[in-house]
Amino acid sequence: MRTVFAALVLSLLALAAGAVEPGEMLDDPVLEERAREISKGLRCLVCQNQSIDESDAELARDLRLLVRQRLTAGDGNQQVIDYVVSRYGDFVLLMPPLKGATYVLWFGPAVIAGLGILAVILFFRRRQRTPPAAPPPLSADEKRRLRALLDKDAE
């Protein structure tokens, strides 16, 4: 059991390591950390659902190197990201930016959930406020049938 657990933990560690090869890393740990952070937010355009930090694709590697080159040249994080976006568009960002065209994407689900909750609340409130109307009294005919049934049970 313990070995299985250890194996699981180790395999998770392997996942966290990403695809960065030792030769790619920068000597300066601060810059390298920034490069990793930027890479995690950039989409690999070959495999599309991986970041360039995780992807083994050659284009991803070249993008990682480009990120590092730009950082070494003195670019800020946002400058590096802006450059890549200027080449590949917003699609390259794993986190879609918040702007006019993406408001629906960002707030749509919350708005729809809010409307749903509101509808449920209104529904229950209305039910509470209007107690069910008293049923109409039985007609003479119904009364007779009821008595007949009750009498039958009593026997």
């Binding site: 050659e58 993008l63 190197l65 480009l66 890549v84 590949y88």
Partner: peptide, 13 residues
């Protein structure tokens, strides 16, 4: 060989 132009052109395949 290092995708210099490819990245500049926004190439992904």
């Amino acid at each position: 060989p290092n995708s210099k132009a490819a990245i500049a052109f926004g190439v992904y395949g």
